[in-house]
């Protein structure tokens, strides 16, 4: 006589039944597809400023604006308050007579518009003192050589500008950008001169650090085709031909997968002693771990270091995909220096 109770399959059957019943009972609020639709923000003017570019009338004034959310077809409309207008981004306008003027800027695009006003009562004077000045910021918020520095001219009363960057470089632009190729302390000098030959000199020191000798991989985001899901995958990281470290082995049921330093890395992946010589490369090998057989390299993804140098040490590289044209293969690389 068959004893049904002793059949493991019967026990499994009951387990399945309970599971299915639980599935029926676990009712939550329904949720369909989420569409990532959000109206893009309209232009937002964050600042309007001006530089009076002579010390006596008629006053040429260059206007500057900083606006966020510059999408689509952007229109600028300046009303200088003396009956004249301009549609340039950062126009220069000559005020023929002294007076107190209200300047209005409207920035618009297909999404919306924003307006800001600027009080130009400083023009109600027969002469303006010559004062040179500037501020600066490092591109990518770091000062490793080569370093790109963006200057903002804050002078007033000057018509002509002479920039001396302290490394042999010079410029006569109002707001120049300059690349400092090597580390050092540079004295940047701005000389502002009025048409009356009256001038003023302003200097500031800028610190440029030596290139980073080490680059740390902060995180790595790996995207692979779905046919590689559930396979044992890890990534080896190389600097030139030197093995640096590897990620832990994963068996992801879906991609992308993020590896975060240090818990997801072996050997703490650091690109050591990076000198940015020609042909120096960072390389990532995506490898499948196969039991009782040699591991198999699926993809070799290469990032030329010159990108890092020429892009002035960015912290993120999205979608590095120097691999054969296959779908859904890329690496997001997050760096720290």
């Amino acid at each position: 006589m068959l004893n049904y109770q002793k059949l493991p399959i019967v026990k499994l059957l009951f387990a399945g039944l309970i599971m299915a019943l639980l599935a029926q009972c676990m009712e939550e609020e329904e949720l369909g597809w989420t569409f990532y639709l959000e109206s893009p923000p309209p232009p937002e003017i964050t600042s309007v400023s001006s530089t009076i570019k002579d010390c006596m009338p008629p006053y040429p004034v260059t206007f500057y604006q900083e606006t966020e959310n510059l999408l689509g077809h952007v229109n600028y409309f300046w009303d200088f308050g003396d009956g004249n207008t301009s549609t340039l981004q950062n126009p220069t306008h000559i005020y023929d007579s002294i007076g107190s003027y209200d300047v209005m800027l409207t920035v618009s695009n297909e999404i919306g518009a924003d307006t800001m006003y600027l009080d130009m009562s400083a023009l109600n004077q027969t002469s303006i003192p010559v004062e040179a000045g500037f501020s600066y910021e490092h591109f990518n918020d770091n000062n490793y050589a080569p370093s790109k520095v963006i200057f903002s001219n804050t002078s007033s009363g000057s018509k002509f500008f002479d920039w001396d960057f302290g490394d042999g470089g010079q410029d006569n632009d109002d707001d120049p950008e300059h690349v400092f190729d090597s580390e050092g302390i540079y004295t940047v000098t701005l000389t502002g001169t009025c048409t009356s030959d009256e001038s003023d000199v302003y200097t500031q020191q800028i610190y440029i650090n030596s290139p980073p000798s080490r680059i740390y991989v902060d995180a790595l985001n790996l995207m692979l085709p779905s046919n590689l899901r559930n396979k044992r995958i890890y990534v080896e990281i190389y600097h030139n031909t030197t093995y640096i470290g590897s990620t832990r082995t994963i068996s992801a049921s879906s991609y992308p997968v993020k590896f975060i330093n240090p818990e997801d890395f072996y050997d703490a992946p650091i690109f050591e002693f990076v000198s940015f010589a020609y042909n120096e490369v960072f390389k990532f090998l995506v490898i499948e771990e196969i039991a009782e057989a040699d591991d198999f390299v699926i993809y070799e993804i290469v990032l030329a270091p010159v990108d890092i140098q020429n892009k002035f040490y960015p912290k993120e590289y999205f979608q590095i995909e120097h691999v054969p044209a296959l779908e859904d293969v890329f690496i997001d690389l997050y760096l720290k220096y």
Binding site: Y36, L37, E38, S39, P40, P41, L71, G72, N109, E110, I111, M223, S226, S254, Y255, P256, D328
Partner: peptide, 13 residues
Amino acid sequence: EIDNRYIEVSYRP
């Protein structure tokens, strides 16, 4: 870019 804040959207299972 003027229709949606996100210009690329990718869904993966």
